[in-house]
Write a protein that binds this DNA or RNA. Sequence first.
DNA 1: ATTGTTGCAAATATTTTGCATTGTG
DNA 2: CACAATGCAAAATATTTGCAACAAT
Lengths: 129, 129
Amino acid sequence: MATSRRSKQRDAIKSYLMSTTAHPTAETIYGNIKKEFPNISLGTVYRNLNFLVEHGEALRISCGDGSEHFDGKTEPHNHFLCRSCGRIIDLEMDGIDHIDIIANAGFNGKIEDHVIYFRGLCGDCQKYR
Amino acid sequence: MATSRRSKQRDAIKSYLMSTTAHPTAETIYGNIKKEFPNISLGTVYRNLNFLVEHGEALRISCGDGSEHFDGKTEPHNHFLCRSCGRIIDLEMDGIDHIDIIANAGFNGKIEDHVIYFRGLCGDCQKYR
DNA sequence: ATTGTTGCAAATATTTTGCATTGTG
DNA sequence: CACAATGCAAAATATTTGCAACAAT
């Protein structure tokens, strides 16, 4: 079976993801890792992001703004999306897993989990309105 | 100011969207409208989909599967995403707008609404497991 | 030594856009 | 007649992939 080997590039991508709460895109990650590995290619970044997501070491966030964002925080949590600045922010909030039960009532399949994007104005953007 | 004019192509796209619950992609819509308008271009489909979404006559669904899906049902409702067949299904369920209040507690911005994708196995896929 | 990983470039896939022409109001 | 909408093709974005060289085990 396919064993995976370690690489400095992958380690760097993972550390970078764990060091930020900014939910960067592949392009942003590429720009940052390049400081340490000037020759790294975007293909390598994408390959490693896919690897990390498949191995549960990162989350892919598809919020519909054109490109995917990635999150090094893998514990289940919810996100907020600012309609003004586009920022994605982690939410600290009480659990709402009961909505899966509500959703499953009257549905003939099996609901296992959910993905939520709360939307509105972030604290910074709200100030200037 | 920019007034909008009617076009047969746009009407056809809107009727098609309202006639289905399958949440088609631009490509699928293109294929179907082509039966009636063999010369329609994909660019026109995209332009009209954007127009309809901007005017509240359709919803854009970004579920992270590579391309966007569109929904002619504009009343607020939630979606289910099957992890086996990829289908997007409308959910009939009790309201859960209280989660916005839960999410806003301890958040320094303003939560206005949310988008949810419930995930799991649809009725059909569950049968064969 | 084996084979997973990389860098690079080319290929895909999706969506947008410039422009001359057509069609609606 | 004015100008919004179209068809077409080219461009812009985002992501994946083939391959030879490199590097981890």
